[in-house]
């Protein structure tokens, strides 16, 4: 950032020290990821469900970049998920069966779509943003839904072939490969997202969220940052979509549905925004409860999910994770100084 370059060497060093401190991993984070990996060894665990939790978690984290860090509410985030899912689908259909490179391609295309969306909405705020993002999502959904010849429409795309990961691990019916593949990709992308939000760029996003006018006066490229944030969020969402296509070897317009945009928002809000982990926690809670309730009461489970949402929103105002943090901090006098990101 240009602001830092003009500082004296000592202060620059202090600033670098600040970001280094910010980026340090704490023990809870390491435990969290080890616990996720450890789920594999729990007897009788539903590996397929776990892999879908990682995918939803990654998807929710991608929305967190926009909503939690930049304060952009989006009701159309499934559009980017769907773009990734369909790109991976087409790759598998037309002979590009190697999953990792197809995933990278899906991310790149989703990023471009996201960047363009960012350009389009960078001057829109508040309710207008909700409407524009929702509108874009619906347009894309209808396009895919109606172009039966190209996309398979409502019936979904047939004939997707995904080669074994690294040529070694076939996607099996127990979901073992899907578990590790989704977890490792989600972790790598998490590390990247974490590095970005704990960098000066991430701090600039938070600054623009809190006080855009002041950021402009500081000379920060607030509008350009919006499209960059969109590109990053969309790339991560696209990766989640591609992961879903590859682990299920199927893609349908459902990946682009408004329901998915709404669900991911709910997951993020349950978990807590502005934490990166919120998405994963929300996905764990939401999907495990949904699966469990739907199995014991296939007809009435929606009622319990609704009740859960009401309870979370009324008792954990900011979501599960931030509320727990507040509780912890109450016991342990804070050593927090400087802005939190």
């Amino acid at each position: 950032m240009s602001a830092i370059e003009r500082l004296t060497p000592e202060r620059a060093k202090a600033a670098t020290g600040y970001f280094a401190r910010l980026a340090r991993w704490n023990v809870y984070e390491i435990l969290f990821w080890l616990a996720l990996a450890g789920m594999y060894f729990v007897p009788n665990v539903d590996l397929v469900l776990m892999s879908q939790i990682f995918i939803w978690g990654l998807f929710a984290m991608s929305l967190d970049i926009l909503l939690g860090y930049r304060g952009i509410p989006s009701l159309g985030h499934a559009a980017f998920f769907g773009v990734g899912a369909y790109v991976a689908g087409y790759c598998g259909k037309f002979g590009w069966t190697e999953p990792i490179s197809a995933l990278v391609l899906a991310m790149a295309i989703a990023a471009v779509v996201g960047w363009l969306t960012g350009k389009l909405v960078q001057r829109v705020t508040g309710v207008g943003l909700l409407m524009v993002t929702l509108g874009l999502n619906l347009i894309l959904y209808d396009l895919v839904h109606r172009s039966t010849d190209v996309t398979g429409g409502d019936d979904g795309m047939q004939g997707i072939v995904i080669a074994p990961v690294l040529g070694l691990f076939r996607f099996d019916i127990f979901g073992r490969t899907a578990f590790w593949y989704a977890l490792i990709i989600a972790f790598i992308l998490f590390v990247i997202a974490r590095a970005v939000v704990k960098s000066p760029f991430g701090l600039a996003l938070v600054g623009a969220r809190e006080n855009p006018r002041r950021m402009i006066m500081l000379g920060a490229p607030v509008e350009g940052d919006v499209s960059r944030a969109f590109a990053l969020g969309a790339a991560l969402a696209g990766a989640a979509g591609a992961l879903l296509t590859q682990t299920t070897q199927f893609v349908s317009p459902n990946t682009l549905s408004f329901q998915r945009s709404a669900d991911v928002l709910v997951i993020l809000i349950i978990g807590g925004t502005g934490r990166l982990y919120g998405g994963f926690i929300g996905a764990l809670v939401f999907l495990i409860l949904r699966d469990w309730l739907a199995a014991i009461s296939p007809v009435y489970w929606y009622f319990w999910i609704g009740l859960l949402l009401v309870v979370v929103v009324s008792f954990f105002r900011k979501g599960l994770l931030p509320s727990l943090e507040t509780l912890l901090n109450r016991w342990k006098p804070s050593k927090a100084d400087g802005p939190t990101a």
Partner: peptide
């Protein structure tokens, strides 16, 4: 019994895997 929640291949495929393998 399991609920597919409508035309939702992501859920349906997972449930099929679940009832078949577990």
């Amino acid at each position: 019994r399991r609920d597919t929640t409508g035309p939702n291949p992501e859920v349906a495929k997972r449930l099929v895997q679940e009832v078949v393998t577990r």
